[in-house]
Each structure stands twice: as C-alpha cells, then as structure tokens.
Design a protein around this nucleic acid. Structure first.
Lengths: 147, 147
DNA sequence: TTGACATCGTTGCGAATGCAACGAATTATG
DNA sequence: CATAATTCGTTGCATTCGCAACGATGTCAA
C-alpha cells in the first residue's frame, strides 16, 4: 500500500509536447530536403543561418541555433568538404572563423528554401488564426536563450 | 554574379523555433531532476508515461512519446536493471511486454513530479494568457502524430 | 490448417552526440 | 608589461542514436 501519485496532466505538459512537435517538424522537413541533397538537419541549420542571418562564425551559429559548438564545428567541416562553404580566419579576431557560402552552397540554399517555405505555409494554413499567438508564445519561450 | 536568394524569415520559421525551444525546455528540466536521480531524458519520459497514461507496452510508449522503439527499449532495460520497473509478458498477446513501475519507481516519480510541475508552473506564469492559445496550437500540431 | 504477411521488442553496427580537454588567440588584471 | 583568465574552434572518447535485420508471436485468407 503506497501513497498515491500527485496529480499531473501529462497531455498538457509543455516540455513533453514541445519535444514531440519539434522532432516531428524537423523530421518531416528533413525528409523533404533529403530527397534532393544528402545533408543532415544540423547541416541544414548551418546553411540557412549563414544565408539568412548575419551569423558568420561557428560561435554565432552555436548561439543562434542552440547547438553544441562541436556539433556546429563538425557540420561546418562536412559542408566545407562538400564544397558548400569556405572557412577563413577573421583578421580582426583571429580566433574566429569567417564562414561563407560558396556559389554551390548558395545554389543549394536557393533550391531548398522554397521547400522549407512551402512546409511553413502548410503549417500556417493548418494553424490559421492561432499563428500569431503561437509566435508570441515562442517569443516568450525563447527569451533568455542566447540569441 | 548570382541569382539572389528568395525571401525567407528564419526568425519565424516554426521547425527551427520549435527545435530551439524544445531542447531548451527538456534540458532545463533534465538538469533539475538529474540532481536527485541519475536518469536520462528518455528514461524520465518512460517513467512518467507509465505513471500517468495507460501505456503499458514498449509500443504504447513509442507511439505516445514519438520515440524510436529501440530508444524506448533501451530506456526500459536500464530502468528495469535499476529496479524502477518490471517487464512481464502480456498473456493476451505474447509479443507485448507489460511494463509496471515498482515501488521504488513509483516513489521516484512521486518525488520528481513536483519538480516537473513547478517547472510547468513557471512556464504558465511566464506565458500567462498566451497559454490557452499555445496549447490549442500544440493540439493542432500534434494532430496526425500517432497518439 | 497452412503459409504469407504484419507486429513486437531486441540487438548489431556505423554514425552522431555531448562533454571535457586542448592549443591558439584575445582580453583583463595586477 | 607580464601573466592570469577568457574565448574560439577542434578533437578524443565514451555514450547514445537511428536504422535495418532478426526471432517470436499473432493475424488473415486461401
């Protein structure tokens, strides 16, 4: 005979729900672009951040994407090896890398972004008027995460 | 001279935002309960699902938590070895496992749930009136994921 | 009943992951 | 200045991961 468990509403529990939705969204998207190019989720995130944010170093991306720096570093190395970006030393601060998409990297991004956008469009269509509120909530939840 | 990139609003892009928030929430929570018990995120998810849903087999948990079945299987094995749950063959369908928390497993859950709940309470306090809309949006986004 | 097919949980294996440690570069402190 | 402390990116290492394959069990239909 044991003490009963405290009440707990697992179906509304945010860490759990976010984990489920996040992995679902990432994987559904990854499936789409993996058909055209053989890149991982991590590599995609690096590419799109180079293309659409002013992140230029490993550290910038690490913070912006909340990815381990070793993960970023390895993704960057694979992308460099595949010819999608170049690394060069930042001459203002020689600890930093200056990452730049190559022509072929830019072309791939240009090719993949419409896929990503149409996926987002699907989600927007599904969520409709819930979208603004969701984005507001996400704003709050990302507060304090290093951007 | 290359074609410019199409417009793309990375800061509002849902797969990306969800990934960031999800890993943040999971890790912050994990940090809390790792101080008291040495269990992984996967193990925690198994435990709480056994305690608070009617999932009883590996397959039930796999679906409900959107975890790879091998990940569930290994988490279950570790928890069994640590004495937090028992496996037994389901006599109605001998392919299924019947998972049950032991007394010590129940005790751990009883101990950890308040931590989890207070974390949720923090989030609720932060989100305030955005909470219901967020939960509605999550409902939509989990549609189609096998529950 | 029998054989084809589906489902459950486990495991092997190569790849990916997180963490700590490191060298190089920079900044802060005395 | 000197030197201690911090930051950046890489790497070694043990662990974890995802996927495919498997044996065992169950279902379906001929």
């Amino acid at each position: 005979m044991s003490t009963p468990l405290p009440d707990f509403d697992l179906d509304r529990y945010l860490p759990f729900r976010f984990a489920v939705v996040a992995s679902r969204l990432s994987n559904e998207l990854a499936q789409q672009y993996r058909e055209k190019y053989d890149i991982s989720i991590a590599e995609w995130r690096v590419l799109v951040n180079l293309a659409y944010s002013d992140s230029t170093s490993v550290r910038d991306i690490e913070r912006r994407v909340s990815m381990e720096k070793s993960k970023v570093s390895r993704a960057v190395s694979r992308l460099e090896e595949a010819g999608y970006l170049t690394k060069s030393v930042d001459e203002n601060d020689r600890r930093l890398l200056q990452l730049e998409l190559t022509e072929s990297g830019t072309e791939m991004v240009r090719d993949l972004v419409p896929l990503a956008q149409s996926y987002q469009d699907e989600l927007v269509a599904m969520l409709q008027d819930k979208m603004p509120g969701l984005q507001d909530a996400l704003d709050d939840l990302m507060q304090g995460a290093d951007l």
